[in-house]
Computed example of a mutant assay.
Amino acid sequence: MKVVAFNRSVQGTGASRRLRNSGKTPGIIYGSNDPALAIELDHNALFHALRKEAFHSSILDLEIDGKAQKVLLRDYQMHPFKPLVLHIDFQRVSASEKVHMRVPLHFTNADASDAVKLQGAALSHITNELEVSCLPADLPEFIEVDLGKIEVGHAIHAKDVVLPKGVTLVLHVEQENPVLVNARIPSVKAADAEAAPAAAAAAPAAEAKK
């Protein structure tokens, strides 16, 4: 994705407020052993870009005064109640250095699983992203998680996911192996299932009394 920005020569709280009033958003680029650079971006274009999933998890081509560089979105601040981006941070990336990034998960085949289709299980999504490490060229836009074979009472963990080539889990995720999604029978259905045998057993006794 391409992002257009401009050098920001004036800094400070007052300058940032005037910038926002003129339809711009202040920001900064840092990293890769180069000095941090203050920038400004068109607010409306940035606001719409932030609504796209890929903007948060992809290598971005940030163009400043006609020169492009590879960056990652690292942070942004929104106004507490207005649809207003107050500030945004980008980090430069090097083609030869691995990056750590949170990548969204796309869950597939949930409705096709026997747990859902035949047993009426509910799938609970515990997390919707994974933190991974890879070279910028290998960074996936998303990671697919196949739920087609999940079983009732079981869960899919981080280490169960098939990662794209060149992508690994970061160390703490590898060690913790968190649950991503689990399959459980809803409590109401479970209670009904337990009550059914008792009701069936009571039926002959009731008929006998008649």
Rank of each mutant, 00 (worst) to 15 (best):
L72G: 01
A15C: 05
D114T: 10
L139E: 05
P136C: 00
H157C: 13
Y76L: 10
K189S: 12
L72V: 02
R102F: 13
F81K: 02
S16I: 05
V152E: 02
P197K: 05
N21K: 12
R8P: 07
K82N: 07
P178F: 03
F142M: 13
L105D: 14
R8I: 06
F142Q: 14
K210Q: 14
N109S: 10
F90W: 04
A191G: 03
P178S: 07
R17G: 02
H106P: 08
G12I: 11
P136G: 00
V173R: 03
I88P: 03
D42T: 08
R74Q: 12
A112K: 12
V85R: 01
A200I: 14
L169C: 02
L105M: 10
I150V: 09
D34H: 05
L163Q: 03
Q77T: 06
L62N: 00
D114R: 10
S187N: 07
N44C: 04
L147V: 07
K82S: 06
K209D: 13
R17Q: 11
A199W: 07
E53H: 05
V145N: 03
S133E: 15
S9W: 10
H56R: 07
H125F: 15
L50C: 07
K165Y: 08
I59S: 02
N177A: 07
H157Y: 14
S9P: 06
G23A: 05
G120E: 08
I39E: 00
A183S: 08
P83C: 03
A193P: 02
P80M: 06
I126S: 11
G14I: 08
F81T: 10
A199R: 14
K24S: 09
A155F: 10
A191I: 09
E141T: 15
A190P: 04
H154P: 03
L50M: 09
I59A: 10
S124N: 12
S113N: 08
D146C: 04
K2E: 15
S32A: 13
S187Y: 07
T13I: 09
A183D: 04
H154T: 12
A68T: 14
E151K: 12
I88E: 05
V161A: 11
S16E: 06
L73I: 01
A205Y: 12
V167Q: 02
R20Q: 02
A191K: 13
D34K: 06
P136Q: 00
F81W: 09
I59R: 01
R51K: 13
N7E: 14
A206W: 11
G27I: 09
P80R: 08
F81R: 06
G23L: 03
I39S: 00
P26W: 06
E63V: 15
I143Q: 13
R74W: 01
Q119M: 15
E207Q: 13
A49D: 11
S96Q: 13
T25W: 02
N109W: 01
G14V: 10
T127F: 11
A200V: 14
C134T: 00
L73C: 04
H56M: 07
G66F: 07
K165P: 02
A15H: 08
